[in-house]
Design a protein around this nucleic acid. Structure first.
Length: 595
RNA sequence: GGGCGUGUAGCAUAGUUGGAUAAUGCGUCGGCCUCCUAAGCCGAAGAUCGCGGGUUCAAAUCCUGCUGCGCCCGCCA
């Protein structure tokens, strides 16, 4: 609890000095209390024991006797070698209700930190529909974008489009050379296209891609096809405008389909950058020239060039090739050019990548360093697999995001229909869509990115405690209270803005109200930590805790009772709904009026 | 073989810079709707934090060995 820290540190410093502790190592030891019931900030006194020749218990006890609580500190106690500080509830309430603690707003007016962050995420090759395996990147990336914005950073979300090379080459070749009938004949043993998505180009065109991939494995035909594709790829890598245009026309409808899916998940981009740009504008040529002059540069027998990163401490495979024998560039080379370009446009650079890109990313980072550039921050995530094993389009072992979204919406709508029989079908649909989308996102962000993730339908569609709908539900409860007050002729806005004299309240505040205050007071701490550590799950956890605290408050603190409004409770409830709302925006969960 | 990551109740996970009685959800068992939305709340049972060693006043957390799982080790992307 950082807002309390400022009030504790000065007096703690004096107290420690007076008993003979003069260094300042203790500031990092003062940390959020593990035992919530004991305090908000705690200082373990064990390290002082040897220095002072007293038991940790006695030291904590002594300190608690010396320190005189101030307005912010409610209670000080010494237990088991810990010195605990508890924020004074009414002080906490005043801080929060006076608006001194920024609630945060991901999309509206908020203080700017002035930092420009460029986050590149998703960047999936545009050759087929978005499946759940790819979704972890997009959802983590977009959540990070939102969290940075909530913190006040200026963020550009960027999609790097692979518009050249083999994958698009295959797609372009197939569209040029295969008829619809050819494709269906080739794929006759495969499941046919779901009629539901027959108008979506990512679903339709991927069949051409799959058909071509199958033909390429057929030995009688593959040689000619490989030659044709190689010709296209080669041309694209040398910046051939007409081939690049052909590629563009092939993949753009697919990309549009994928973006439609992403948009449904609440994911949008500020900019799309084509990989080919760095070939056509000469950046790659300049780069390879520079790399060729580096000290750690080497040349293979056939003229291919590499850097020996082993000379800079790289373990394992140390040769990093940036130029082929035929002189053309490689994906990683273009990625380096892309990074140099990106660095000119931001203060911080973050990439979201699958764990399979770790080596590649390390090579790019070390090369950037060798060239005197900064190394980007990278968030790696482990793959999503299905209970049946690895996700594979080839084996038909995939879950398409479009299908998951539909399923989640239908499932949510069904629940609404059962629970709220009076809602119109239009409202049911709106709630279903919002709940489905939010639940899918939350299901993925709440777990740590570096842990493996197994996609299970039951879990994706579980809308109970620990899910997005649970958070959404708490939020609508708060709105529904406010609505009830308004319906009873109470001016909620006026009460919300009123300055209450909390000191005139004689009684203690209820525990669950205090819990809620404490939870709100650490919201920004959690946000900062989540952003700093590049781990959205930390903030997801905070918002979940906030919703739980709100439910406790809701249970114990009656706001509108017997025609009377408890003004403090109403203010707290209104504030909590703001905290919940901005927290949800940060996570990409859609706040609803009612559900 | 080498490199990187990971292993926490039946299942899925959280756990801050090492710090108190390891937290949450699902599932199981038992309660709560004449009371602002029960997608909720309260309670119970359930853990050798993969295994061994080490560092430390203190280890799920740091170091080391072993082991299971994942990813990578292309002049592919």
């Amino acid at each position: 609890m950082n807002i309390l820290r400022g009030h504790v540190e000065p007096i703690l410093k004096d107290a420690l000095n007076s008993i003979g502790v003069n260094d300042s190592n203790w500031t990092s030891m003062l940390s959020p209390s593990r035992e919530h019931s004991q305090g908000d900030l705690s200082l373990p006194c064990f390290p002082f024991a040897k220095q002072l020749g007293k038991s940790p218990n006695d030291i904590a006890e002594e300190l608690s006797n010396i320190i005189v609580p101030n307005v912010a500190i409610g209670k000080i106690n010494a237990i088991g070698g810990y010195l605990n500080f508890k924020a004074e509830p009414k002080w906490l309430a005043k801080q929060l209700l006076s608006g001194k603690i920024r609630v945060g707003d991901a999309f509206g007016n908020k203080p700017h930190t002035g930092r420009q962050i460029l986050i590149e995420h998703t960047s999936a090759n545009p050759n087929g529909p978005f499946h759940v395996g790819r979704a972890r990147n997009a959802i983590l990336g977009d959540t990070l974008v939102r969290l940075h914005r909530l913190l006040g950073n200026e963020v550009r979300a960027e999609y790097y489009v692979d518009d050249m090379g083999k994958q698009v080459g295959v797609l372009a070749w197939a569209l040029d050379n295969l008829s619809k009938q050819d494709v269906e004949d080739i794929l006759q043993d495969k499941e046919s296209l779901s009629t539901k998505w027959s108008d979506k180009a990512d679903h339709t065109r991927v069949r051409w891609y799959q058909a071509a991939q199958k033909l390429r494995k057929d030995e009688s035909k593959s040689e000619k096809i490989e030659q044709d594709i190689a010709k296209l790829v080669h041309a694209s890598e040398h910046g051939d405008e007409s081939v690049l245009q052909k590629f563009h026309d092939s993949f753009q409808p697919v990309l549009d389909g994928m973006l439609e899916t992403l948009s449904r998940l609440g994911i949008e981009f500020n900019q799309f950058t084509n990989e080919s740009m760095f070939v056509t504008n000469g950046d790659v040529a300049k780069l390879t020239e520079t790399l060729s002059k580096l000290e750690i540069h080497g040349v293979a027998d056939n003229g291919a060039e590499y850097l020996d990163l082993g000379a800079r401490g790289m373990k394992g495979k140390t040769e990093f090739f940036f130029k082929r024998g035929d002189g053309s560039s490689l994906y990683a080379t273009r990625d380096i050019a892309y990074h140099i370009w990106k660095w000119k446009q931001c203060d911080d650079l973050i990439n979201i990548l699958g764990e399979d890109h770790k080596l590649q990313s390390k090579q790019v980072g070390m090369t950037l360093q060798e060239l005197g550039h900064k190394v980007p921050e990278v968030l790696f995530y482990s793959f999503i697999k299905l209970p049946e094993g690895k996700m594979s389009t080839r084996k038909g072992n995939v879950v398409f995001m479009d299908d998951l979204l539909e399923e989640a919406k239908e499932h949510a709508s069904q629940i609404v229909r059962e629970l709220r029989t009076k809602y119109s079908e239009q409202e049911v649909s709106h709630i279903g869509e919002s709940v489905g989308r939010s639940a899918i996102r939350f299901n993925i962000i709440k777990v740590s990115p570096d842990k493996g993730f197994t996609f299970r339908w039951e879990e994706a569609l579980a809308f109970e405690a620990g899910s997005a709908p649970f958070i959404m539900y708490s939020h609508t409860r708060a709105l529904s209270i406010a609505k009830k007050c308004i319906d009873n002729g109470i001016d909620v806005d006026e009460i919300s803005n009123k300055e209450l004299d909390l000191d005139s309240i004689d009684s203690e505040l209820p525990d669950s109200l205090i819990d809620l205050l404490r939870c709100m007071a650490i919201q920004n701490d959690a946000l900062e930590r989540s952003v700093m550590q590049c781990r959205p799950n930390l903030f997801a956890n905070q918002v979940l805790n906030l919703a739980t605290s709100f439910n406790g408050f809701y249970r114990d603190c009656k706001i509108f009772d017997d025609g009377n409004v408890n003004e403090l409770y109403l203010q707290v409830s209104q504030l909590a709904s703001q905290f919940l709302k901005t927290g949800m925006e940060g996570l990409g969960i859609t706040p609803l009026e009612r559900m």
